[in-house]
Design a protein around this nucleic acid. Structure first.
Lengths: 218, 218, 218, 218
DNA sequence: GATGAATGAGGTTTCATTCAT
DNA sequence: AATGAATGAAACCTCATTCAT
């Protein structure tokens, strides 16, 4: 039936809208007051709905928290994929992916970090899913690193170690923002860490080609 | 009076013992079940004492949590100071300090990381004290980096950025231990990150002198 | 919208009902077992609701206790206003106001007195509000006394001293009810104290006019 | 045995000293912070002894509180007895007894009142003993009133009603001291209430004899 | 006699969750 | 679909009381 189809579509759309509305509200609260301020009542108030309604879209609080974290991790994957595809050179792809991570972190700041921390309170099953998503979100970096190594552009290094190091460096800004912002901007932070990371692995014979990324360490 | 003196000494010793007992119990719980599992009842049970007793040694829960975090941070400072003093060469001092951090992280693992995260729930005043301790615990690294730079051993880099990068790398093992332990030991992790960090900043003309630290990236 | 209006009205009514239900429960407990027996659990049980619900209507225990006391004081003001307005003669107005106080005391008995006593445990701000309400509730008595003095019906006396003396005399029945009830009824108590108070201040030349109030002391 | 006798005497003296020390400490706390501030720990601190020691002199907290109240009531009896004996005239004896009460109240202020209030938390048996003591402490007033009535000095009034009224008036200063002290001193308060009470009951033909007590109401 | 560390029941408060409307 | 009043388990904290020293 057409009506039924339309109704189903409308319902699905509403479900998505509501879920998004609630996830955003929760993320906003996380950013503002830390995990401590995420109560079901607060989420409801922040989203402008009733407490009861949350339970029509998320089975319980854990499911909501899990969804918020997965949402952030998905944002990472999405926001990194695009800049990566535009770069042909694998080293520049690596740098672009790192810059992508950094921009998501800068944007979501507290929410990004706090979402992580909350993960200790989740069920093992949910934790596994989050770990998987995290590994997945690191893939573009690992892939770029591996290709650069295979192309002989980088020295002998484990691509996973390199990639995770960059990923953590991206988060470091959110975690220690209170310290770094005393003496540098986020742009400087990204540039300096890009230079540091690349200068450690780019083979001497290719350094000249990336002098724009390596800066004074070229 | 001997008795009085002895009594006072005994009391002081007891206070210290109890505080340590409670801090350890809390740290153990943090490591096992995350901040979520640190209730006063749980700490009491874990320490084998009654709830009420905790309040003779810590004014309230926040004070206890604050003390746990400060305790961990002090442990960092202590454990890093020693290896650093034994090295004459500033670059090796940097490496030794990093290794010191890593060994504390390895030992306290979860407690180290989770203690940090909990800090979001503390009072601003306490947070400031923790930040100060953290900056202080990074000092040996920053000092070593600065001396190495002044000695012309390292390239042009901000010693604070370098130092905090290493500090975070040390924590990274605790945070992503579930990932890295799949394919490397903690020793390999330390060695590889030491090599990565140094190879990015040691001037080409001095690389040969540190080939033992730089490994394949030498 | 009708529904909305009706809903709002229903909610307001519910809020009022619940507050009253809880205030009454607390007052009942005060009367029965003293302030000692007013625990949130007891209030909840007495009112037939859950503990948590109390916190939807009162922010914390102090607010509840404060509200109970203010409620009693308001009852005094209300119950005294009416009989006072019906009397044209200021001396009779004074007597009517006193009788009004006494009847409230008789009805609320213990709650009335205990509510007072509890006030020592309140915040300074709340205490001030209670004092203000108390002074306010004494106003009708003071006003009547002042008019009677101005009309030359009473001797030279401070109307505030006279009024507060009567107010306390009213409370005295609640406080020492266990003593007086051995040998007199509440009606006799009111009559005797009315006579005592008036005979001390009514000028000799007007005593005859109030012989019904003065009784044997006329 | 002499030694034994002396030892017993010394022990008894110590017991009395300690009891007094603790009662005074408790009374001081009552006066300062209300019944709320009377915890065994606070009493111990205030008295400069350990918590455990209190239990060698009072079986439990209730016994201590009971003793504090009885102590205050005894103070009333003692302090009223003396001035009463010095007056030959029964009306002046009544006034002297009232003044005695007032001076104890003024001295013990809060403790006097708060001691009463606490009584609701005591065991029925203890309450009865307190009531008995209270009635007893009112005896001098009642006796004086009765004699004055028998001597034809006062009008037809129940001596118990008159006596208890005066007793409450004495307490009124402690209870509403915050109000009265705005516009009168304690001396004025005592004088005015003495005048009020006497003018209500002294027979017209004897008023002249007590014009010093009756003041402007003479 | 005296101490004060230790206990644990009981009080206040919060918050995830349910359910009648 | 949506509401929010109601619940009650569980958290934090206090304090009367005991007992080894």
């Amino acid at each position: 039936m057409q009506t039924s189809d339309a109704a189903v579509a409308a319902r699905t759309a509403l479900v998505d809208t509501r879920r998004r509305q609630l996830l955003n509200a929760a993320a906003r609260l996380l950013g503002r007051g830390g995990s401590h301020s995420v109560s079901m009542q607060n989420v409801a108030d922040e989203a402008g709905v009733s407490v009861g309604l949350i339970y029509r879209y998320f089975g319980n609080k854990q499911e909501l928290v899990q969804a918020v974290i997965e949402d952030v991790l998905n944002e990472f994957s999405l926001r990194v994929a695009e800049p990566v595809q535009e770069e042909a050179d694998p080293v520049r792809r690596l740098a672009a992916a790192f810059a992508g991570y950094c921009s998501v972190v800068q944007e979501l700041r507290d929410a990004a970090v706090l979402a992580y921390q909350e993960s200790k309170t989740l069920e093992p099953e949910g934790r596994e899913r989050i770990k998987a998503l995290e590994v997945e979100s690191a893939e573009p970096l690992i892939a770029a690193a591996r290709e650069a190594i295979d192309a002989g552009l980088l020295g002998d290094v484990d691509p996973r170690v390199l990639a995770y190091g960059l990923l953590t460096t991206a988060h470091l800004w959110a975690l220690k923002h209170w310290y770094f912002s005393r003496f540098m901007t986020h742009e400087q932070y990204v540039a300096e860490h890009t230079a540091l990371a690349l200068s450690s692995v780019v083979r001497p014979e290719h350094r000249a080609a990336y002098s724009d990324l390596l800066g004074p360490l070229a």
